[in-house]
C-alpha cells in the first residue's frame, strides 16, 4: 500500500488536502510550509510547480505562480528544497501539481526519478491527456512508484471515469463545477450534489477528493459529505498574502478549516 492509500485508510473520511505554490510567498517558504500544514493536520499536501501560463488556474494561483517564478523557483530548486523532507514529514503524502511543459523540458524520466528520490508520492498534470500518459509516461511513472492523479469534471463521461479509476492507485480529483481554481460555485442547487452522487454510485476503486472553490470550514464540511475529503488551494494562498510569517498563517488557516 502506498502512502496515499495509507492516508485514506487511516482516516477514512474528512481528509484535507492542502495546495500551495512552491517558492511562495518567499523562495524558501516551501519546506516550512509543508511542515506547518502537516503539523496543523493536513492529510495530504499538494505542491504547485509554478508555470508562466497556468490555464486551469484562477487569478490567485496565477499571481502566486508569478511571484514564485520571480523569486527564482524552478524544478531544480524545488527538488533541492525537498531533499530530506521525509525526515521532517514522514507520513503525509506529498503530490506535485503543475503543467506539462516545464516537466517535459526537465525531462520526464529525470523528473520522476528526482521526485521519487525526494519522497513524492503522486503527480497532477492537468494538461497531460490520458492517452499520452498511457502511451508515453505510464511506464516511467510506474518504475518510480509515482501515482498520477487525474481530474474528473461534471462533463466527464462514465466510461472515461472508469478508465481514470483503472489508471491510478491514489484518488480521483473531482472538479466541483465549471471554472478555474479559486472560483465561486455558481451552480444551481442540487446540480453539484447529483454529480457527486452519480460518481459515488459508480463504486470506484479509488477514493475521491473534491477541489476547486473549497475555501473554508463550511465548504470543506459540505464537500466531505459527498467524498472522502476535499482540496483547498486559493483560499490558503490568500491567507499567505500579507503576512511576515507564512508558516504560522498557514497553520492557523488549516486549523480554522479543521476546527
Amino acid at each position: 500500500m502506498n502512502r496515499i492509500q495509507q492516508a485514506f485508510q487511516k482516516k477514512g473520511k474528512g481528509l484535507l488536502n492542502i495546495y500551495f505554490t512552491a517558492g511562495y510567498p518567499r523562495l524558501h517558504d516551501t519546506v516550512p510550509l509543508i511542515q506547518a500544514v502537516a503539523a496543523a493536520g493536513a492529510d495530504l499536501i499538494e505542491i504547485g510547480m509554478p508555470f508562466s501560463d497556468p490555464l486551469a488556474d484562477g487569478p490567485v494561483i496565477q499571481a502566486s505562480s508569478t511571484v514564485a517564478l520571480r523569486n527564482g523557483m524552478n524544478l531544480r530548486v524545488l527538488f533541492d528544497q525537498l531533499q530530506g523532507i521525509r525526515e521532517l514529514v514522514p507520513d503525509t503524502p506529498i503530490l506535485l501539481m503543475g503543467y506539462l511543459n516545464p516537466v517535459m523540458q526537465f525531462g520526464v524520466e529525470n523528473f520522476c526519478r528526482k521526485a521519487a528520490a525526494a519522497g513524492v508520492d503522486g503527480v497532477i498534470l492537468p494538461d497531460l491527456p490520458l492517452d499520452d500518459y498511457v502511451q508515453e509516461y505510464q511506464e516511467i511513472f510506474r518504475r518510480h512508484s509515482l501515482r498520477p492523479v487525474f481530474l474528473v469534471t461534471p462533463q466527464t463521461a462514465p466510461a472515461r471515469i472508469r478508465r481514470i479509476d483503472e489508471l491510478t492507485d491514489s484518488f480521483l480529483y473531482l472538479v466541483s463545477g465549471p471554472g478555474t481554481t479559486g472560483g465561486q460555485n455558481t451552480q444551481a442547487e442540487g446540480v453539484q450534489e447529483a454529480y457527486f452522487q452519480r460518481i459515488e454510485d459508480m463504486q470506484l476503486r479509488n477514493p475521491r477528493l473534491i477541489g476547486f472553490g473549497i475555501s473554508d470550514k463550511a465548504s470543506f464540511r459540505q464537500a466531505c459529505r459527498y467524498a472522502e475529503g476535499a482540496i483547498i488551494g486559493s483560499a490558503l494562498i490568500r491567507a499567505l498574502e500579507d503576512t511576515e510569517d507564512a508558516p504560522a498563517a498557514a497553520q492557523q488557516f488549516v486549523r480554522s478549516v479543521l476546527a
Binding site: L55, A56, L100, P126, D127, L128, P129, D132, F150, L151, V152, T153, Q155, T156, A157, R160, V175, P178
Partner: peptide
C-alpha cells in the same frame, strides 16, 4: 500538434 488540454476542456 496533439491536444494537451485539461479535463475540463475534453468534452
Amino acid at each position: 500538434g496533439g491536444a494537451f488540454i485539461p479535463e475540463m476542456l475534453y468534452p
